[in-house]
Simulated assay, not measured.
Amino acid sequence: MSFEPMTSVAAASGFDRVIDLRAGALPDLIAGLLADARAAAREDRLVAERRVREAIELVQREGKRLLDDARPAPVTGGLAPWQVRKVDAHLAANIDAPVKVSDLAALVRLSVSHFSRAFAVSYGGGAREHIIQRRLERARQMMIETDEPLGQIAAACGFADQAHFSNRFRRAFETSPLVWRRLHQRGQVASIDAADSAFA
């Protein structure tokens, strides 16, 4: 494999400018430089050392650039970390009580509209649906860990009544809480995650 055109570019530029490489081309280019170095080592040690140095520089610079290009762009416009912590703590402490979006917005010192936009960026969806999801997660945990009746679990997780809880549960998991609980209690699923995959 000959890399003479690359070599001349490298020599002229001192390997100090970014070469537009696709990720797939990098291994072949490095392998070619090292093969040239091995071949040159028998005849000209300085050429061999130069090829090895070029390969090392290429790996360091282009590898870093390719990794940087692969990183996702930072999320902007979301809640600050301290705001996320406050929202999470408030929801955990008030899972059984009514939670208004306006209360959450006030908690983190934002207008309701700004909070709603920032919340969606940070959590990947709206605040109301997130609150329902948190309540359903807590209800499933209680269904596994306790023998409480479904009506009491519904109340403990902030649902208006058992019918409201059942409706939301069925919408989220495509089965009723009673069926889900019986299935779990029979030992047919080993965890909440396994139960989810059964209804996916």
Rank of each mutant, 00 (worst) to 15 (best):
E4Y: 11
V9Q: 07
A11G: 10
A12F: 07
A12G: 11
D16Y: 05
D16I: 02
R17H: 10
R17V: 01
I19K: 01
D20E: 07
A23E: 15
A25H: 15
L26S: 09
L26A: 06
L29H: 12
L34S: 00
R38P: 02
R38C: 10
A39Q: 10
A39C: 05
A39F: 03
A41D: 14
A41N: 15
R42M: 12
R42L: 12
E43S: 14
E43K: 15
D44L: 00
R50D: 07
R50Q: 04
R51D: 14
V52F: 12
R53V: 08
E54L: 03
I56L: 14
E62H: 14
P72Q: 04
T76I: 11
A80P: 06
V84K: 14
R85L: 14
R85E: 15
A89N: 13
A92H: 00
I95A: 01
P98K: 05
K100Y: 06
S102P: 15
L104R: 11
A105C: 10
S111C: 13
V112E: 12
S113V: 04
F115Q: 07
S122R: 01
Y123S: 03
G126Q: 05
H130I: 00
R134G: 13
R134A: 12
R138Y: 06
M142C: 07
I144L: 05
E148F: 10
L150E: 04
I153N: 05
A156C: 10
G158F: 02
S166C: 08
N167Q: 14
R170I: 02
A172V: 02
F173V: 02
P177A: 04
L178W: 00
L178H: 11
W180S: 08
R181W: 03
L183V: 11
G187F: 10
V189H: 03
I192W: 09
A194I: 03
A195C: 08
D196F: 11
D196V: 11
S197R: 08
F199I: 14
